[in-house]
Design a binder for these strands. Structure first.
Lengths: 185, 185
DNA sequence: ATTTACATGTAAGGGGTTACATGATTTG
DNA sequence: CAAATCATGTAACCCCTTACATGTAAAT
């Protein structure tokens, strides 16, 4: 149920088309809730059917921009959702599952994969820092900007965390590799 | 595709029933890939149909334990999967989506939710530390134990990270609340 | 004998991904 | 006018979750 509320949030800030939303997701809400254009279009259709958003009147045709804006019912639904408590989800990380498998059948090419993951996290971190500098360097930000900055910093911190953990992991796996393989246990 | 490989890993360590796996997942692989008993039973059935695992011959009946073990093809499939590179997934966190919404419609009861999340992360962290002390205090662990310890420490670090970030976030949101609401922007 | 814990499943539905289809607009 | 880019959608499938159904074994 998060995608629809992410969409409502984005549309409240600025009426947009599905295509716009897809692009905006890639560099803001998408840090913590990525979405493909297909899922966005589907959710937009559902939201409109339910009367939470409406498309600005334009001749509807396939290749034409279709702008949506949030109706009052949509804003209420968002506020209501904001009030619902959800337990924190357990994270799902295929790399950790691979590492767990490596503890049984040997690391194989996993160390190299971890190096690539570390690079990916480095790049993502750099990207976030760039955005932070560009969009949140105002010395007297309003409340909204402060919160958005905080969210971005959550991303920076997470990427940093994985970078350091991966470095430790790579080091340990390399040592283990040198001094007898896991398979031999 | 991670669940099946998590299951193969667990079964390689010890032939188990679906019920066993569900319990073992709760306190090991489940740190990074949780699974309900329903999904485990379904995947076990699929794996058996595909010939990657086999059930030990016993009169199959509904309320009776059904032990599975991994066949050679299953081990090969696991090793093959281990060699496949996957990009790191973007994390999905409904709380961050809520916070993003709060930057538009105001924080409302979100601070209290964040306190509860912080508590949940504290508890999970304590749980992991307990397991670490109980299972990984051997001064000369073998390679497999070292890797499993490393995975557990990834969990500890993540929980710690979210605890500190949430503390910062709660503090900022409280300040923002005191000095004029986000809604008023 | 009944309750509780153990154990295995089925069914429906939600939400997401990948692949594919199609039209409109801009640029060389 | 051809190609690239912008833009909206459909269809099939995958994996997971929630709710429900059912049977066995141990404890009181």
């Amino acid at each position: 149920m998060s995608l629809r509320h992410a969409i409502l949030t984005a549309l409240l800030e600025r009426p947009s088309s599905g295509f716009d939303l897809a692009r905006r997701f890639d560099r803001s809400i998408g840090y913590f809730w990525s979405a493909t254009h297909q899922s966005i279009y589907r959710e937009l259709a559902t939201l409109e059917r339910e009367g939470l958003i409406e498309s600005l009147p334009q001749p509807p045709s396939r290749g034409k921009r279709k702008l949506y804006e949030v109706r009052l019912a949509g804003r209420s639904a968002l506020v209501a959702w904001l009030g619902q408590y959800e337990e924190p989800e357990r994270s799902r990380d295929a790399l950790l599952v691979r590492l767990r498998a490596a503890s049984v059948v040997g690391a194989g090419p996993l160390v190299e994969q971890m190096r690539l993951h570390r690079e990916a996290h480095e790049e993502r971190r750099a990207e976030y820092l760039e955005i932070a500098e560009r969009d949140f360097s105002d010395p007297h930000p309003d409340a909204s900007a402060q919160i958005q900055h905080l969210i971005l910093l959550a991303g920076v911190g997470l990427e940093t965390y994985w970078m350091t953990w991966l470095s430790d992991a790579i080091e340990l796996l390399s040592e283990v590799d040198r001094s007898g393989h896991a398979e031999d246990q």
